[in-house]
Design a protein around this nucleic acid. Sequence first.
DNA 1: CGAACCTGTTCAGCCTGGGTTAAGCTCGGG
DNA 2: CCCGAGCTTAACCCAGGCTGAACAGGTTCG
Lengths: 221, 221
Amino acid sequence: MKVLLVEDDRLLAQEIAQALRHENFAVDIAADGEDGQHLGETEAYDAAVLDLGLPKIAGADVLRAWRKKGRHLPVLILTARDGWTDKVDGFKAGADDYLTKPVRVEELVLRLRALVRRSAGYAEPRIVCGPLTFDAQTGVFELNGLPLRLTALEWRVLACLALRNKSVVERSDLNEKVYEGDAEVDSNSLEVIIARLRRKIGHQLIETVRGRGYRLTSGEP
Amino acid sequence: MKVLLVEDDRLLAQEIAQALRHENFAVDIAADGEDGQHLGETEAYDAAVLDLGLPKIAGADVLRAWRKKGRHLPVLILTARDGWTDKVDGFKAGADDYLTKPVRVEELVLRLRALVRRSAGYAEPRIVCGPLTFDAQTGVFELNGLPLRLTALEWRVLACLALRNKSVVERSDLNEKVYEGDAEVDSNSLEVIIARLRRKIGHQLIETVRGRGYRLTSGEP
DNA sequence: CGAACCTGTTCAGCCTGGGTTAAGCTCGGG
DNA sequence: CCCGAGCTTAACCCAGGCTGAACAGGTTCG
């Protein structure tokens, strides 16, 4: 669960980033269109929040560049102006949702979660996997109906697994999605997190696929 | 099941090789046209993935050289440029399929498997041999309808046998196709793998042909 | 201000899967 | 009957993965 935030207003960027981190997301921030475009092309994100008015490269052009290269991550457009021309321009460039400033961060978080969920192929917000359920709209996990207390990293890992329900998620992918920046980690901390998760939700639910990564399973065959 | 990958972009080569190895293929990598041509002429492969833009010798020329020497292994052409002239050039040189960068590795794997299967003479993806079936498109073996869990080496051996359904596969050939590089192995590890395979799928299905190799049979006459 | 957390990271030791080696056995053909 | 090719089992080895414990920052709260 990692989000790219492209926003030149440092204050607003910090505010949004804080809110997203509070909801357990990992957040990378780019302060101009150039950085933003580059990050969006080279790193793995579950979604991007993109301001239209950016230094160096305009937001719509950043988006167009991504789409041209086949990057189909969900993008939420942000703009100060609220003329419909901008909106249309944004959608034409390939945006998935749209928000006008001033931004209510709670709404942003909500919409972003909906985007991520739909882009993972879920029409319904509720993802069920055996005794485990994930409400992609609120971000809450439940085990046998009881809400699960997870730390930020645990949540990110489990959310990644839940969104790719029952198919393998590569270790490298998890590492990228869990840590901010490109913190090429040479450590086993991911394994530790997996171990702690397993202790919380039961060992059968997370299957390891040797040499590749992990997979969420509903129980045993 | 061994594939030759000729690609000068080390990163892309590693990515593709990793994906192929995940699918149990043995992979040899050549970083330029010279190496590629040489390997393709001297080693035994089930297929080759060939970049058109290569140092030393152009991809199309490598392919032409192979064809001239009577090498008819299936070749999948890869290119950054997507002009139709390249495509035509590739096919004229004797390519069997064509993919433009940026490459989606899943698609590459799919197409490659289809090439190997067709070159072995199967129009249909499903190869049946008594209680054993091999889906050459997904790479999955089933015994009496139940999916079979095989290790990488076991899979390679059995796939080689299945593709030459009911005809003898030489020991030397198997050794080449199973091990990466030209690891002329002086050991009985192939026999060990055969033994393990037989324990999994039943002893009658793999017939040994003294002094030559092995053959897949549907049961007994 | 300090004590008690809470989170995340590091490290060391252990376990396991998968591949190779080695040794003894079997079997088939001369 | 003998010999060599092939079979099989067990032992070994290595890399990858697991996990408990310790530690380091941060935060909370008395």
